[in-house]
Design a protein around this nucleic acid. Sequence first.
DNA 1: AAAAACTACGAAAACGGTTTCGTGTTGATA
DNA 2: TATCAACACGAAACCGTTTTCGTAGTTTTT
Lengths: 343, 343
Amino acid sequence: MKRKITLKQIARELGVSISTVSKSLKDSDEISTDTKQKVQAFAKLYNYRPNNIALSLKNRRTKNIGVVIPDIVHHFFTTVFRGIEKYANEHGYNVVVCVSDESYEKEVFNMELLANGSIDGFIMSVSAETQQKNDFSHLKEVMEQGFPLVLFDRVIDEIECDKVIMNDEEIAYQATTKMIAEGRRKIALVTTESYFNVSEKRAEGYRRALKDHGVDYDEKLTLVLPFKGVEESYIEDFVESKNFDGVLCVNEIFAVLLMAATQKKGIRVPEDVSVIGFTDGLLSRYSSPTLTTVAQHGEKMGEMAAEMLIEKLENEIGFHEEEDYRTEIIKATLIERGSTINT
Amino acid sequence: MKRKITLKQIARELGVSISTVSKSLKDSDEISTDTKQKVQAFAKLYNYRPNNIALSLKNRRTKNIGVVIPDIVHHFFTTVFRGIEKYANEHGYNVVVCVSDESYEKEVFNMELLANGSIDGFIMSVSAETQQKNDFSHLKEVMEQGFPLVLFDRVIDEIECDKVIMNDEEIAYQATTKMIAEGRRKIALVTTESYFNVSEKRAEGYRRALKDHGVDYDEKLTLVLPFKGVEESYIEDFVESKNFDGVLCVNEIFAVLLMAATQKKGIRVPEDVSVIGFTDGLLSRYSSPTLTTVAQHGEKMGEMAAEMLIEKLENEIGFHEEEDYRTEIIKATLIERGSTINT
DNA sequence: AAAAACTACGAAAACGGTTTCGTGTTGATA
DNA sequence: TATCAACACGAAACCGTTTTCGTAGTTTTT
């Protein structure tokens, strides 16, 4: 167990001062070529690497970014995370992840922990419980302490900071419009209880599309499912009792369940009913028929979020002009597969 | 932008020394009750929290653990990660994640980065490329530097360290046996190119089950698919040209693709063919029919790995007895669903 | 009343770096 | 020859803690 070598040890070994070693390794021209070469050779031999912790303390920056997300076992968040990690890594940052598990308390706890020096800034998507409670003091707190914050997907209007969101309303509009173009006139919506502003946005796009194209909006054709613990019977009952020829689902699970329910009843997809979902995950790609779905480009969102955060971090070093916060919109795209009639 | 308050500031404000403040906050009995109360009240008022970086430097431990995995957009790794994060968080550790993306170079690079003080120990699953190259010097390196290492799933026999694996051979044996019990006699295997020891283990279990039950092993009934870029036609061709009444697939994607191919050809699952996969992800739960599959209990693996690592970390503080490395086996279980005939 | 023992606190080292500011030794300049 | 700049390096402060050890001042002991 040989601990990593330090400047002090090199200095002692070579009979010079710590400063000389430090400067030599930075190739400072304060030091003679001779000495520099000697030090550099020695350092190389012993595979010297500066200690990150010491650097962090000195520089007051850790080169770590904190990611706080509600869930990691979830395709969308996973892809966003992938984008963050990728961009961060390419730019010399490491990523510390905390999962809030949709809990307000864990979210607050984790953020406080990270804010005690572990990271330079936050990227997060707030938990369901936090959205319900409508309490964002922990976010304000970290911002006041000078931590840059980038919110993605589940963002908070009342917090002023950088944000990355999707064009939920618009893409739902497009998806609905596509079904109308196929000739569908009785289009259903399967959504979740909506303290999620994203679900709400999607519903709005859906309704606007109906309205714009002169299709009647029937609120009975909207099925609202609970956030946790969806039972298949909810969907089967809906399929049984309602009459529709198109469905927009706010995630791919609902879409696949719905396809299974219709098919079970002998209703064919896409001949009798068109189905469009959200999230381009495994389910969409491998269901039968394959699912036409909204690709959210999570990885791109993650990269964008990381880019915005890192830009703030690097600029902070310079002077502090007026805060200007951006909201970037990542455009979702509709991927046409087998559950709709493609033109 | 009010930076966090430090001991020094409290000391100055209260006209005492830094040591006194530090001791007061630790409720040391070196300090008079009076002073302690004053300091504690002040610290509370200004919400003092010790700086993690300074603590790390002082204590030579970061309370961070490094997780290096090949992929995060992958159900199994995601669940393992979830387990790690959960256990770590409950025990006061944060988790830094690096994704190797199946690349040897990234794996080495990330580990070196993390080893410069960012973390206290590693949990990892080696990349495909590393397994191919058979070069594990970076693992030996970090171990020599005194970092505890826990390997999971894709472990390396030649590295001596703590390990967490699944009983792949045994569960494949069980799965195959189950199909034999159903009366299947022509059982196929769909697997990946096998520099993955896990795939190999599964194949072994499959073969042993056939042998033990007197079923002929026909090597033509084994389909080996590439690691990346599987095309559906490979599977369809296999279904077309071979004759089988049961299939064991080493992951759920292969299983779902295979079910789709058979159904397309008019072969029914499970009436004509039983199908069993690995990984209890969304696909297995929402496919039609639902898939009988091997639940790998990734979360449990993650928790176990974290537990083993943290135990090593906390014990290190004491004295260093003989190294004793454990290999824990997480028992996979067979989840019976609609793609097999359940008894 | 002198010695011993507490009490309550501060100075300083240490963790591992970076960086500013001397300073002794050269060689060149006036 | 006295002065000065350049060169090459070292001392020390600093980042924010913890912890050991020293020490005034007070109290107890003999």
